[in-house]
């Protein structure tokens, strides 16, 4: 059974249809790359998965459980949505680290707030706090930031910030980690260090959805590639299919500049 199934997702802003009948699925431990020009709906799709936007219709299932059935009008409570969100993690293009907290605190904050909801929190407070700190330090080490844990975001480079943001998302152990153009705000040098980290996560079988303009990376890291255009999934398949045996003219056009560079 796929870990994620998205069926017939549609989303309209004002009068603009941004997502049109989006369906795809994702297996545990696999990576899907979503490519396409700006404004094609890639970011909106990720935002729908993370409950930052509510689709107008469509179904989202995680591990077979229906997380969202947009056709079903029953109003959801904020608390329920909050629980559902935790199946997903999201790394933003602009990092969105909390500036008043150190790298370590950024990674720990949400986890600590969630821990307060555990029934045994009061009794094991120090122990839980310690566990979260150890986990956060481990994640930052994994991101190559062992010397940067006490630094504030403004003291870090863009690449370091983005790696902190990745650690922050991983701390909550999401089923599916989403990246929204994680390197678009970075120069080529810093892009490399972030892509390396994401590649390592892929090697460890982290289930991920990566929206990116880094075509070579999309091809190399993904098991499945989705090309979006004007709100539709125009083409999807293995990287070989989409990049090698491109079916659609529009996809070929989009990839032409990239392929020339190869």
């Amino acid at each position: 059974m796929p870990i994620l199934e998205v069926e017939h997702l549609c989303k309209t802003f004002e009068r603009t249809e941004v997502l049109k009948d989006i369906s795809f699925s994702l297996e545990q431990g696999q990576v899907v790359s979503i490519i396409g020009s700006s404004g094609s709906g890639k970011t909106t799709l990720l935002r729908c998965l993370n409950f930052l936007e509510r689709p107008d219709s469509g179904v989202i299932r995680v591990n077979g459980e229906v997380l969202l059935d947009a056709g079903n009008p029953s109003p959801e409570q904020e608390a329920q949505i909050r629980r559902k969100r935790l199946h997903f993690g999201l790394v933003f293009q602009s990092f969105n680290l909390f500036p008043q907290y150190t790298a370590l605190e950024n990674v720990m904050l949400a986890k600590e707030l969630l821990a307060k909801e555990q029934p045994d929190y009061k009794a094991r407070k120090n122990e839980i706090h310690e566990e979260i700190r150890v986990l956060a330090e481990e994640l930052l080490r994994q991101m190559g930031l062992e010397n940067r844990m006490g630094n504030y975001p403004h003291q870090l480079s863009g690449g370091q910030c983005q790696r902190v943001a990745i650690a922050r998302a991983l701390a909550l152990k999401p089923d599916i980690l989403c990246f929204d153009e994680p390197t678009s705000a970075l120069d080529p040098e810093l892009t490399g260090e972030v892509l390396r980290v994401i590649k390592e996560l892929a090697d460890q079988q982290t289930t991920m959805i990566i929206v990116t303009h880094e075509m070579a990376f999309a091809r190399d890291v993904a098991h499945h590639v989705i090309f979006m255009d004007d709100g539709y999934i125009l083409e999807q398949g293995t990287p070989e299919q989409v990049f090698g045996n491109t079916k659609e003219e529009r996809t070929r056009q989009f990839l032409s500049r990239f392929n020339q560079g190869q």
Partner: peptide, 22 residues
């Protein structure tokens, strides 16, 4: 920036936690 609130939301924080902590 609205990204601060969104970052809090995707991390499962409540709106009041986001206001007071972020």
């Amino acid at each position: 920036p609205v990204g601060q609130e969104e970052a809090g939301l995707v991390l499962g924080m409540t709106r009041s936690q986001i206001f007071f902590k972020v």
